[in-house]
Design a protein around this nucleic acid. Structure first.
Length: 920
RNA sequence: AGGCGCGUAGCUCAGUUGGUUAGAGCGCACGACUGAUAAUCGUGAGGUCGGCAGUUCAAAUCUGCCCGUGCCUACCA
């Protein structure tokens, strides 16, 4: 007779094959139907808030794998916090202003043959706004497809009128507290377009420059025997000579004092002149300047040039200022003379070095590329065309020892392809020293919790070493710096009334108002608009996103500031973490976050960065289509995201394998719990020992999960859950309990106890997994309770029941499992020797110590080993000795155990009873 | 070139203050079961702990150098 029908086999609707790409959108639809985000807010109302403030992605282009990582990680954290019972309210945001969008619009213009400069600025900005909106909507859909739960109906963006007004208001705070000032700094300038260019708008191409070796006579020095000697510099930009104010040397370099003995006929050098150049470059300079013979008079260590003052090469022609010699790290002996001429208005290094030593920054260049008229000898000359002429003049005035030409890589404009120059232009800055901004920011970093810890050092040293924040950009798509400058005094107007007017007008019409509404509306009646210059610069977009704490965290009633956590890729140490900290500290004196978590970058499976040219990019869209979001989420949870993380076909396969184990565990639980009812539950005290052990372990894992949430150790949670499912559930507990579940008496305390424990286990497991496998956990949960409104994501992780803790029991079962592993190994051996085939055919004889034997008191050892018979004999040995033989008796047709009581083709006593009661 | 990181089995990760023979799971191989079945169970083989040198009785762990790699800067007179 076939007893299969009488066996209580697992039964469930939960399919083994997930079909996530099809299933997930269905679940998303249900969540939308029941409005789960809103529901969660209502349910968690009044609970402790947990605010992970979203760093806004830039609204252009589709979701890529890095963003997917970022968003999933944020979602996992929010869901775990929510599962702890907190009100984890996530408001996603977008960064909307800035150059990349401006470019796209310009590109569209170029295609249509339109010129950007002929388009009214407000119209141009409108197109940028529409572009940002379009991508925001696309990305919003993509983020939600990943399972991200948040306020997608009302996200924040940096371009709403409220946000623009609020950001302008923040700039107003810096204006009023004195932190914002007008300074100047050399920027990459295109003399063709008459505009500053951003780093990204620059391309490097070969360019032919006129080079000169110019001589600076030593005027005052502590050095001996250098009277009348010349320091020689080399430059590829002769036009910067009028702006020269210093010469840089390196303390580490050895220099030579050289007397020129013989020169070629066409050399510009003079016999008997004493020149000073780096020792390593003497040959090189001599060759380039056609010096045929020379002698080294002495050598000079670099650091001795301190305090030395030189004369400008054109000292006698209107350039009579002192030229200081300054030490600088960036001076090398790779090229030139080992001295670098410093024109603070025409180079980044030059500017900062000059600033450090309080050297004036002269203005020498007009926006159209012409040297200013008042400059002696060179007024009106053009920086790109007249370099040979400048070299001629200097040569005439006996201020060179050589000249030449050099083809080298040089910055050019992306648009016009014209060479660029560094030009000193007025810019707005936020001072790092006013109001102790830097110091306070560093203190706030000390108070911040960093995950991982190394982030603290990184942010700290960046803030510590950064110069003042240059806030202005010469651009169109962004928030204007809302400042008026008094034409007479050059001072910015610092008046709260005016700022308030600007802010309220931005609130009504957005920051376009700056370009549309006449200045008089803001200034009058207190001031006369004619007395003021209206600033046309746009604020650095980092100021926008740096202000999100103000217009998101502070302005929304359902959020709070400071946020519990800011979480971004490690590149944001220089970006959002940085600007948010400075903005908040500068305006409020405190950091906007309590913690910072950084994740690494996504690399390919070999650890190389992804690039189109290598063809190793991984598209999240492909993974969603082929595997589903839960697989991507599992990849995030299973990786150590503090470091860079890898992805590729093999790694995806690895995670789908792990997914199957988790899914099958859920499936087996659901199958085993088929028909489980409240009245089947029994008390803990009535449960078998094995179930008590299981509940102890459930408690242990539960505590561990809770603890690891606090430290954001999700890959550790993942590993622990996976190992628990594999080692303790699937291959141990489930394996042992199959007999009881399939064949046991449904009314027995043993089987009811087992199912009660399985129910508890299922409740825990789905709660642990829900934040990671948000779709699968919901699917399994719904399969169990069948109540759409009652989503798994509304639940919390169960509170540990102290009663279940029994460490002594755990230690006992560790030993039992060890003995079991010895038995299984012997069974395998017996199988290989053809003694038995299946383990139920085995009779196990164990020689073991009394202590070990006592472990099995009141337990059915055969069940634990999944054999039919076990006999013990006590011996004084440490490790049990096991022999395997064939079990005595016949095979029970229902439970397949081999027992003496069973008649051929018959049933064992237990099965006979069960069949009689339940299957007739 | 500089600043901050990283490098442990094919894959994802553990390895406490230096201390036996470097661990886990997956994958792989072999086997079992056919009552979790495109599942489940068992057994097993996989590592010069990126390389070299040093400190030490003892190094995956501490130090130095090198190689590879990632992020951020600087790519210049």
């Amino acid at each position: 007779m076939d007893y299969k029908e009488t066996v209580f086999l697992p039964k469930t609707e939960f399919p083994m094959k997930a079909g996530l790409p099809r299933k997930e959108p269905e679940i998303l639809k249900i969540w939308e139907e029941i409005n789960i985000y809103q529901k969660l807010r209502e349910q968690r109302k009044g609970s402790e808030k947990y605010i992970l403030h979203d760093g806004p992605p830039y609204a252009n282009g589709n979701l890529h794998i890095g963003t997917a990582l970022n968003k999933i990680l944020k979602d996992i954290i929010n869901r775990f916090q929510s599962m702890l019972g907190k009100d984890a309210n996530y408001v996603p945001g977008w960064d909307c202003h800035g150059l990349p969008i401006e470019w796209k619009i310009e590109e569209q213009y170029r295609k249509k043959g339109k010129d950007k400069d002929t388009i009214p600025i407000v119209e141009f900005r409108k197109e940028c706004r529409d572009f940002a909106k379009k991508w925001m909507d696309i990305q919003s859909q993509e983020f939600q497809r990943l399972g991200v739960c948040g306020n997608f109906k009302n996200p924040y963006t940096t371009m709403t009128f409220d946000a623009e007004a609020s950001i302008a208001n923040e700039m107003g705070k810096f204006l009023l507290n004195g932190g914002l000032y007008r300074g100047s700094k050399p920027v990459m300038w295109s003399v063709v377009e008459k505009t500053a260019l951003a780093e990204a708008e620059i391309e490097y191409e070969d360019h032919k420059s006129t080079t000169i070796y110019a001589k600076f006579e030593v005027k005052k020095t502590n050095l001996q025997n250098v009277d009348g000697a010349y320091i020689i510099i080399w430059t590829t930009t002769p036009w910067t000579m009028p702006g020269n104010r210093a010469v840089a040397f390196s303390k580490e370099i050895n220099y030579s004092l050289v007397r020129i003995k013989k020169i070629a006929d066409d050399s510009l050098a003079k016999n008997n002149d004493l020149i000073i150049i780096a020792k390593d470059l003497v040959e090189d300079v001599a060759k380039n300047c056609k010096i045929l013979e020379w002698e080294e008079v002495s050598s000079i260590l670099g650091h001795k040039f301190d305090e030395t003052i030189l004369s400008h090469p054109l000292n006698n022609y209107g350039y009579s200022h002192d030229v200081k010699m300054l030490p600088a790290d960036f001076v090398t002996v790779e090229q030139g003379t080992g001295f670098v001429h410093i024109a603070p208005g025409h180079g980044e290094d030059d500017y900062f070095l000059g600033k450090k030593f309080n050297i004036e920054v002269p203005e020498t260049l007009a926006g159209n590329g012409k040297l200013l008229d008042h400059l002696p000898l060179f007024g009106g000359m053009h920086v790109l065309r007249d370099n040979p002429k400048i070299a001629d003049i200097m040569s005439e005035k006996n201020s060179l020892i050589g000249r030449g030409e050099l083809i080298h890589s040089y910055p050019h404009s992306w648009r016009s392809k014209a060479p660029l120059v560094f030009r000193n232009t007025p810019q707005w800055f936020i001072s790092m020293t006013t109001n102790n901004l830097k110091e306070t920011a560093l203190n706030e970093i000390e108070k911040t919790q960093f995950y991982p810890e190394a982030g603290k050092q990184r942010l700290y040293s960046m803030i510590e070493n950064r110069p003042d924040w240059c806030l202005s950009r010469q651009r169109a798509w962004g928030i204007p710096i809302p400042v008026f400058v008094n034409k007479k005094t050059g001072e910015p107007l610092r008046d709260k009334i005016v700022i308030d007017r600007i802010v309220s007008s931005f609130k009504k019409g957005g920051s376009d108002a700056w370009f549309e509404i006449p200045a008089s509306n803001y200034l009058e009646p207190e001031y006369d608009a004619n007395d003021f210059e209206q600033i046309q610069d746009i604020a650095d977009v980092w100021f926008d996103s740096g202000s999100t704490h103000a217009f998101v965290l502070e302005d929304r009633d359902d959020l709070k500031s400071p946020a519990n956590l800011y979480l971004e890729g490690s590149d944001q140490h220089r970006g959002w973490f940085h600007s948010s900290l400075l903005e908040s500290v500068g305006s409020r004196g405190v950091a906007p976050f309590e913690g910072i978590l950084t994740h690494g970058f996504v690399l390919d499976d070999k650890g190389r960065k992804m690039s189109k040219s290598l063809g190793n990019t991984v598209n999240p869209q492909d993974i969603l289509r082929d595997y589903g979001a839960d697989i991507l989420r599992l990849w995030v949870a299973g990786s150590d995201y503090y470091e860079d993380l890898r992805i590729g076909p093999e790694i995806i396969k690895h995670h789908t394998d792990h997914y199957r184990r988790l899914r099958n565990t859920l499936r087996y639980l659901l199958g085993s719990l088929n028909g489980f009812q409240e009245n089947e539950k029994i008390d803990y005290s009535d449960m078998p020992q094995l179930e008590k052990w299981l509940l102890h372990r459930v408690n242990e894992v539960n505590n561990s999960v809770r603890e690891k949430i606090e430290g954001y150790n999700f890959h550790s949670i993942y590993t622990e859950i996976h190992n628990f499912c594999t080692i303790e559930l699937s291959s141990f507990y489930f394996e042992i309990r199959k007999d009881l579940l399939y064949c046991g008496d449904p009314n027995s305390l043993e089987r009811r106890g087992c199912r009660t424990a399985l129910d508890i286990l299922f409740n825990h497991l789905t709660a642990w997994l829900a934040p990671i496998l948000c779709f699968t956990a919901e699917e399994a949960w719904q399969c169990y309770i069948n109540d759409k409104e009652n989503s798994i994501h509304l639940k919390t992780i169960p509170i540990a029941v102290n009663n279940w803790n029994d460490e002594a029991l755990n230690i006992k079962w560790k030993r039992i499992r060890f003995i079991r592993s010895l038995v299984l190994a012997e069974i395998e051996e017996a199988r290989n020797n053809n003694v038995i085939k299946s383990s139920l055919q085995a009779k196990v004889e164990i020689k073991l110590s009394k202590e070990d034997k006592d472990l099995f008191e009141n337990l059915i050892a055969a069940d634990i080993f999944i054999t039919s018979e076990v006999s013990f004999s006590i011996e004084k040995i440490e490790t049990p000795k096991i022999t395997i033989e064939n079990a005595d008796g016949n095979k029970c047709s229902r439970c397949w155990k081999i027992l003496p009581e069973v008649k051929p083709d018959g049933l064992c006593n237990r099965c006979e009873d069960v069949v009689k009661i339940y299957c007739s």
